[in-house]
């Protein structure tokens, strides 16, 4: 009898220990990067076989899709959606399934189901994947025209996409297209809109990262840390349009108004560009060491480039603001220019 009691006590002690360890391990599991999301949501019933079963379902899906042509019956589309749903339940990181499924369901006449699937995907990988929200925005604008909230929804999706590192520029232009409705004729407002939308990562992050290396060059060019080059180009284009309109204007009042507008836009651009090798009049890019603007021929302020880290140096600086190396006496040309200066276009 006594050893039974000893054992029972031992079991209780060990169980207490086990609960502690189990809690710790479960915490670690939840925090473990790349862990099964369905599990984290507590709805997995695939006991570790989820990913494998998702592969099988995916292959079946591919076969099923091949057999669908044109716009099928709603029931067929629903069945297809269910299968996409199961597949992504089994492996929530199967981004391919969200992408294909969302677009496919929209094209076969079930944009709502497509959006549902994309929403599910955005919930899982939304903070690292810009494709899903941008697809969702496209579906909303293209297929849900009768929805009164379509625009607001599309805007929301696009803003979500804009938060993600490495998103392409067309996300921003799409956002401006939506937000600029009604103010297209006001170049100052449009320039300000571009300044607002073109902010990379939404203002704060840009400010946080001031002085840090920029993101992927393809998306942002070398135009500072906060604004993409393309956004700056857009505003420069607006400025050029306003100026050429001002040149052509015959009415002095009209001309004055346009010139005032151009000056306001110049302020916006200067804000956006910060210190850059750009002509202070037409904002065309020039190379370090150039004396004249390649676009308008005006004298330019000469900025140098840090010989150590390649950062653009402002006028009359003694030290590089980025790496602290002493600035060269003479302005230095950057070793290999990435892009030709953006000519008038």
């Amino acid at each position: 009898m006594k050893d039974v009691i000893v054992r029972v006590i031992l079991i209780i002690v060990l169980l207490a220990l086990f609960v502690g360890i189990n809690g710790g391990v479960s915490d670690l599991l939840v925090k473990q990067e790349g862990m099964d999301v369905a599990l984290k949501q507590g709805k997995s019933m695939w006991v570790g076989l989820g990913r494998w079963m998702s592969h099988i379902n995916w292959m079946l899906l591919l076969q099923k899709r091949a057999s669908i042509s044109g716009k099928p019956e709603p029931a067929v589309a629903e069945a297809l959606h269910r299968r996409y749903d199961t597949t992504t339940d089994q492996d929530p990181y199967l981004v391919l399934a969200y992408e294909h499924g969302g677009v496919e369901l929209a094209t076969i006449g079930q944009p709502k189901l497509g959006l549902e699937l994309l929403d599910k995907g955005i919930g899982v990988v939304g903070d690292t994947n810009w494709k899903l929200p941008s697809y969702a925005a496209q579906i909303v604008t293209q297929y849900c025209k009768d929805d009164p909230n379509a625009e607001a929804k599309a805007k929301q999706y696009l803003q979500q996409a804009k938060q993600v590192d490495g998103h392409p520029f067309y996300i921003e232009s799409a956002l401006v297209r939506i937000q600029g409705k009604g103010i297209q004729n006001d170049p100052v407002k449009m320039a300000k809109l571009w300044k607002e939308v073109g902010t990379r990562m939404g203002g704060e992050r840009g400010l946080d990262q001031e002085g840090a290396d920029g993101g992927p060059e393809s998306a942002y060019g070398e135009y500072g840390d906060r604004y993409s080059k393309q956004a700056c180009d857009k505003v420069v284009n607006i400025l050029r349009d306003v100026r050429s309109a001002a040149d052509k204007a015959t009415d002095p009042a009209e001309k004055k108004k346009l010139e005032a507008q151009a000056n306001q836009i110049v302020m916006v651009i200067k804000d956006m560009m910060g210190s850059q090798h750009a002509c202070s009049y037409c904002f065309a890019e020039y190379q370090a060491g150039d004396k004249f603007c390649p676009n308008c021929g005006r004298d330019v302020e000469e900025f140098g480039v840090c010989t150590k880290c390649g950062a653009v140096l402002g006028p009359n600086v003694k030290f590089c603001p980025k790496c602290g190396a002493s600035a060269p006496k003479q302005s230095v040309r950057k070793p290999a220019p990435k892009k030709a200066p953006n000519a008038k276009k």
């Binding site: 189990n22 599991l29 862990m35 990181y93």
Partner: peptide
């Protein structure tokens, strides 16, 4: 937490996604 922890075997997901356990 009194139940056995079988969820630890879900860690193959991490590997398949190129993560580090």
């Amino acid at each position: 937490y009194l139940l056995p922890n079988f969820a630890i075997m879900g860690s193959d997901n991490v590997v398949a996604r190129g993560g580090i356990i």
